[in-house]
Computed example of a mutant assay.
Amino acid sequence: MKNIFRKKEKETVETKSSKTKVKSVGTRKKSVTVLWIVLISSLVFGIYKNFTAIDQHTVHEKEVIETKLVDTSAIESFTKSFVKDYYTWQNNKESIEQREEKLSHYLTEELQALNTDTVRADIPTSSSVSDIDIWSVSQEDDFYAVVYTVEQKITEDKNSENISSTYQILLYQDNVGNLVITQSPTLWNTPKKSDYEPQQPESDGTVDSDTAQEVTEFLETFFTFYPTATDKELAYYVKNNALPQIDRDYLFTELVNPIFQKEDQQIKVWVTIRYIDGVTKVTQNSQLILTLEKDMNWMIIKRH
């Protein structure tokens, strides 16, 4: 009886122990629910950010910057007419009065009064305009700033002198295109030569000496007959209208320092072609950058 009792007791203990081992966590517990909420929120936020980034990128790609072209022909013509009348006079009363009358067609009333005595009645000189250069026309709203250089021949008694001066004026243009000068000619600086020097190309060794010699001979032959070549003749040596027909009396003399570089199966050439103009007898240097390729013979396929 004791053994039986102990066996049953043991079985009971084992059964309880087994039930404790297989105990599982329910999927409806609060902690699991919170984890699911965090996971789903992260996924939704990631998808939102992804679509937002794509939308922003698309808008950036479609951004267009428009350049407004302004026709300044009327501004330049008006300025040149004014400059010619402003800087032309004779040393006599009648000429000076005519000048003042002409200036009334360009200046505001205030400027007209201001410029009345710029050329005095007793002035000993006469002036004529030999050249006018417009350097720049810049716009701000309805106003234009024009920089120009005027070349004058100044005569006093029997002596004459050529002078060159640069000025800026301001003009106003109304909505129908009429113009008036709002600022007297003001001394300005003349544009000068820039010290910029472009980087010179160099042969990079990608074209061997035999090929360079072959291309040089082709170019010498081509540019010898090029000035008088017809379109039909050019078609044998030029593709895609890379060089136009010129029909000029030019005598080919030499190629000056051709530079060769290989690009895939093509040859890029920097070259100066020296001619003598048959009419003026002066030397003419044509500088070209060309791309050539070889089919049955060498062909010029592009002018840069």
Rank of each mutant, 00 (worst) to 15 (best):
K19C: 01
F51I: 06
Q265V: 12
D141H: 13
T12Q: 05
D157Q: 13
E161C: 03
G278P: 11
Y275C: 13
V22Y: 01
A121R: 05
L288V: 14
D55P: 00
T27N: 05
S126R: 05
I37S: 09
E293M: 10
F260Q: 08
V150Q: 07
L39R: 00
I267P: 13
I276C: 00
I54P: 00
F143D: 04
K2I: 10
R274W: 03
L288W: 03
T108M: 07
A242V: 14
H304E: 15
I37M: 07
V256I: 15
D71Q: 05
L43C: 08
L255P: 07
E161I: 04
F143W: 06
P227D: 10
T67W: 14
T33Y: 04
Q152C: 11
S127D: 07
A229T: 04
E9Y: 07
N240Y: 14
E66K: 10
I75S: 15
Q168S: 12
W36P: 00
L114D: 09
A74I: 15
E66N: 11
E9F: 08
P258D: 05
E197M: 12
I267D: 06
Q90I: 04
F260C: 06
E97S: 11
K7G: 04
Y236L: 00
Q200D: 00
L69Q: 14
N115S: 14
V207M: 09
F222H: 06
F223G: 06
D122H: 05
N92E: 14
M299I: 12
E11Q: 09
W36H: 03
F225K: 02
K93Y: 14
K192S: 15
N241M: 03
Q56L: 07
T12E: 13
A229Q: 01
F51R: 02
Q266C: 03
W89N: 13
W298F: 13
H304P: 02
K192G: 15
T12C: 01
I300S: 01
E156H: 06
W298P: 12
E220V: 12
S24L: 02
P201F: 13
E151A: 08
G205N: 11
K62M: 11
F218Y: 12
M296H: 06
T27A: 02
E197F: 11
V70F: 14
P185M: 05
Y48K: 01
D142Y: 13
S128W: 04
E61S: 10
I169R: 00
A229G: 09
F78G: 07
L39W: 03
I181F: 04
I154T: 09
M299R: 09
T224N: 07
L187G: 02
K262I: 11
W135I: 09
L290K: 06
Y250P: 01
Y172Q: 08
T224P: 01
S194M: 13
H60D: 11
T186M: 01
L234C: 05
V150R: 07
L187A: 10
G46D: 02
Q200K: 15
L187R: 03
L243I: 08
H57D: 00
Q287Y: 12
V279H: 03
Q90N: 15
S203Y: 09
D117F: 07
E197Y: 11
A235I: 01
S31M: 04
F252T: 13
N92A: 09
V180F: 06
F78V: 10
K68D: 06
D277P: 05
K2P: 00
I47G: 03
D295H: 05
H57I: 02
V83S: 10
N115V: 09
